[in-house]
């Protein structure tokens, strides 16, 4: 995915625009950037001053995509010298939680959000069991590894709700330190 360093042979101007657009913080999880989240697909400048950006949503209905597009447009105008910015949403290939960078995962955990476990793209969505208030044993497909508590690191965590404050997160609780926490779902 897009990172700070430009791919070899890339036009330096486009590389710097990519870096600029990628540095925009996620509107709902401002601790990580759009580049780290892996939603920035492509930045091109087909003619001077005219910038085209391709974004992909984490979830189809994610309302943050509009805020992301507005933020990207603003930063490219104010700091990138763009006169015209077109932000297009692309759906294919679909975003996967595997697109979140190592640095993004580290920042999520530091912020108290358990990062998604790797390998979602190979394994398909990790389905988990449900009970009205708590659940200890995943009832469905075997999870590749336990979801660790971002506060104390314990692997003893249970699902409180498969849906949380945003579409991309589930709500869990650590049975050791007793803290509830968000878990970025694997998809």
């Amino acid at each position: 995915m897009v990172t700070g360093s430009a791919p070899a042979g890339r036009h330096p101007r486009e590389a710097s625009l990519t870096q600029l657009a990628g540095s925009v913080p996620d509107p709902e999880l401002p601790v990580i950037t759009l580049a780290e989240l892996g939603v920035l697909r492509r930045v091109a400048e087909p003619e001077p001053g005219h910038v085209r950006v391709e974004l992909t949503p984490t979830y189809t209905g994610c309302p943050a995509i509009e805020a992301m597009a507005a933020d990207i447009e603003r930063v490219l105008r104010e700091e990138g010298g763009a006169e015209r910015v077109e932000v297009r949403t692309v759906l294919s290939p679909p975003w996967s939680s595997d697109d979140i960078s190592e640095e993004g995962r580290r920042k999520l955990a530091e912020h108290g959000v358990a990062p998604p476990r790797a390998g979602a793209r190979r394994a398909g969505p990790v389905l988990v069991g449900l009970s009205p208030t708590r659940h200890t044993h995943p009832a469905q497909a075997p999870a590749p590894e336990p979801v660790r508590c971002p506060n104390c690191g314990s692997a003893a965590t249970e699902l409180l709700s498969r849906f949380s404050s945003t579409a991309c997160k589930a709500l869990r609780r650590c049975t050791d330190c007793r803290e509830p926490f968000d878990h970025f779902k694997e998809v």
Binding site: P94, W95, G124, L127, R162, F163, V187
Partner: peptide, 23 residues
Amino acid sequence: PLAAKAASETAYHRDHAEQWTLR
């Protein structure tokens, strides 16, 4: 283009409905 993405979202919906149907 939408379908691959929507298929994984709806798999989660289906699982949610299944768990409640069982309960």
